[in-house]
Design a protein around this nucleic acid. Structure first.
Length: 696
DNA sequence: CAACTGGAAGAAAGG
DNA sequence: AACCTTTCTTCCAGT
């Protein structure tokens, strides 16, 4: 786990660290699995293949078989029923004297009015205030952000991913946290159903959860946003230029870390009431249902990301009556950043002093210096009752008991996503040339739906990616039947796994759609940052029928996939390195191999504090004569403190320049005593070395 | 013709 | 504020 700790550039840089497990079959990955998984148990393992680990949940599942359940945090079965509510009612919980407040009140009143008027019509004209900090409605041009695919202000848990990736400090913090604590996503909504069903449709079909249709057929977001902004095509015809208008006031890249939170994620208001695993919402029926009177949960009322906002006891009666959802979310947020597992009792949430209207800062939660989420509970099974299935944010294991969801063929590390303004760029391909292959092992009684969505690829638990959506590919070249649906604003493809196909499917029908950053970032409540957040994982999930009308939910995530046009071609990528540990005195050589690693590359060792500050960093000396393309050899630098008694885990990365740094990997310095023990060659170590040589 | 690809122009953002 | 670099988004041409 810790052996694959990626620290830097949390953002879109991934950390396989926690997961170290890889399920893919064959090739070098096998060694990684072994290496990483037995690392702690046997430090003598000497080499680590880094790349292409499985999803985080996978790892956990393998490591302790429990991670998943714990991380699941709020088990749906235990959750109190949540009042179905119209999204942003909790808006009223915000103090109301500032300008923003005024705006908020207006929003609320308009929303209420709309609701009072009821019907689809009012919803179509629901007033959604623009982010005043970001863009002035009066000067707003037809949004470039017309993408129907945008996840919009629904920013969710998943969007947490987004801000952090850009900032090293936060990065490091999270990185550390992920290494030391299993991140239990506090953001999952136990009530949101990933399974499409007629009854979930109202939520899933909210126009605010864009169906991500092709640009040619899309209902534009603008048209949903407000009558003022309505446009009839996803690419605003009123836009004078073919290029998007400047997202005036776009969140500054640097300042975004202030937004250390996001609004609620996939808090789809109500649970699916249908046990059906099918009944997907499709493009076809989307429009038919678009008038359903339940808008998705709009997190925002205020120009403050919910996750950073304090929650107060003074929630109005109305809040409590109509916004249980919101309160719960708030509680979840507090829990997430602060302490233990999700509490079922929202009343236990810390009471915070009331807001001082004049002090807007008070509305933000401090970003903790470290995470204190509790450790996984090994015994909790990922079993759910169909109405309360895990949200897409909920980490799940890839394996449980006899069952395992395995990616037999991983996707390529690079797949250029297409914009809505472009044509499709085709289906995701596998490294071997075909397409990714996924197999459900241990179950072959009946067909089961395989769900596919695009997830984050940062250090934390996989969540739906705010800036990418899976895109259904059709055509002659596609042999796999698929169905499209939308779950909590995330587009999901469903592919049946049939017993006659050994519960295996070739994923040749899934492409990746890129949503414009401005579309997402300008959403009220959205804190995700899209810039440089271009890595994703393809996430696969199944719900296996169990006795008692329950299902066992498994999920596995692919290796990271770089979706931008070019950066993947330039960033160094550490695929494997050896050794993984060494004496605090330094010495010896480390071989690092991977794409875009050259003799000219530099390698830096560093240590960070739990709060993300760099405590120590040193430029390792490159042994150029032994380095070659794809491989660099460095002298392992001595640790700054040779008197440590315990092993010390540090990080290192390869750099090809200021903006061309690899993800960080972990290296362990062993104290003199320990190092002496492990310097004795062991079978495992020799085996690891041999493997490494073979792979060279 | 539609889908897919690779390349690149120009805008936007960041330093 | 000007300038440079990087990244994003759109467009184009070719398969």
């Amino acid at each position: 786990m810790a052996t694959t700790n990626y620290g830097e550039e949390l953002d879109f840089r991934l950390t396989f660290g926690e997961d170290g497990q890889q399920h893919s079959l064959g090739h070098t990955d096998v060694s990684l699995n072994d290496g990483s998984s037995c690392y702690f148990g046997n430090v003598s393992q000497h080499q680590l293949v880094v790349n292409r680990p499985g999803g985080i949940s996978q790892a956990s599942a393998h490591h302790d078989g429990s991670y998943d359940t714990q991380r699941t945090g709020c088990h749906p079965l235990e959750s109190p029923p949540r009042v179905f509510d119209c999204p942003s009612i909790q808006i009223t919980s915000i103090p109301t004297s500032t300008n923003q407040d005024g705006l908020i009140n207006q929003d609320v009143s308009q929303m209420h009015t709309s609701e009072a008027e009821g019907g689809a019509g009012s919803r179509d004209h629901m007033y959604l205030p623009l982010e005043t900090f970001h863009r002035d409605p009066s000067s707003l041009c037809p949004s470039p952000c017309s993408s129907i695919s945008s996840r919009s202000w629904l920013s969710d848990a998943s969007s947490c991913e987004s801000f952090s990736h850009v900032y090293d400090d936060v990065d490091a913090e999270l990185n550390e946290a992920t290494v030391r604590f299993r991140l239990a996503s506090p953001l999952m909504s136990p009530h949101s159903s990933p399974l499409p069903s007629p009854l979930t449709s109202p939520l899933a079909l909210s126009p605010h959860q864009s169906p991500y249709q092709s640009p040619r057929t899309s209902v534009t977001e603008d048209s949903w946003l407000s009558p003022h902004l309505t446009s009839s095509s996803s690419r605003p015809s009123s836009r004078p230029s073919s290029r998007p208008n400047s997202p005036c006031g776009k969140r500054p890249y640097v300042g975004a870390d202030a937004c250390a939170g996001t609004s609620s994620p996939h808090l789809s208001g109500s649970p699916s009431q249908s046990p059906s695993l099918r009944g997907s919402v499709t493009e076809e029926n989307w429009f038919g249902n678009s008038s359903l009177p339940y808008p998705q949960h709009y997190p925002s009322d205020l120009d403050v990301p919910l996750k950073t906002r304090r929650t107060y006891k003074e929630h109005t009666t109305q809040d409590q009556a109509t916004g249980v959802h919101g309160l719960e979310e708030a509680a979840v947020e507090e829990e997430g950043y602060g302490a233990g597992p999700l509490s079922q009792d929202i009343n236990t949430e810390p009471t915070l002093p009331g807001p001082r209207n004049e002090d807007f800062v008070e509305h933000f939660l401090p970003v903790p210096s470290h995470f204190t989420w509790s450790k996984p509970k090994p015994s909790q099974a990922p079993i759910y009752s169909p109405p309360c299935l895990p949200s897409l944010d909920t980490p799940l294991p890839s394996q449980y008991g006899q069952y395992e969801l395995r990616i037999e063929e991983q996707p390529r590390a690079h797949h250029r996503a297409h914009y809505e303004t472009e044509g499709s760029r085709g289906a995701i391909k596998a490294a071997c040339g075909g397409h990714p292959v996924v197999k459900l092992i241990g179950y072959n009684e009946r067909p089961v739906n395989l769900q596919i969505f695009i997830g984050t690829a940062d250090n934390r638990a996989v969540r739906p990616h705010a800036f990418y959506q899976v895109h259904r590919i059709t055509g002659k070249t596609v042999s796999t039947a698929s169905q499209e649906t939308v779950i909590s604003a995330t587009k999901v493809l469903e592919i049946p796994l049939h017993p006659e196909n050994s519960m295996s499917a070739s994923i040749d029908c899934a492409g990746i759609l890129k949503l414009r950053n401005s579309d997402i970032e300008l959403r009220k409540g959205e804190t995700a940052i899209g810039r440089k957040n271009t890595r994703v994982r393809v996430v696969f999930r199944v719900h296996i029928p169990q006795s008692g009308e329950k299902v066992l939910s498994l999920q596995t995530a692919s290796v990271p996939v770089e979706c931008s046009q070019r950066s993947a071609l330039e960033l160094p990528d550490i695929e494997r390195f050896s050794p993984i540990s060494g004496s605090v005195s330094g010495g010896g050589e480390m071989h690092i191999t991977g794409p875009n690693i050259f003799p000219d590359s530099k390698v830096f060792f560093l240590e960070k504090s739990p709060d993300g500050r760099t405590l120590w960093e040193i430029d390792a000396k490159v042994v150029r004569e032994k380095s070659k393309d794809m491989n660099v050899v460095v002298e392992i630098p001595p640790y700054h403190n040779k008197n440590v008694n315990l092993s010390i885990q540090v990080l290192f990365y390869v750099s090809n320049g200021k903006r061309k740094k690899s993800l960080t990997q972990s290296f362990t310095y062993l104290s003199g005593k320990i190092s002496h023990c492990f310097n004795t060659p062991t079978k495992a170590r020799l085996l690891a070395c041999k493997c490494f040589q073979m792979m060279q």
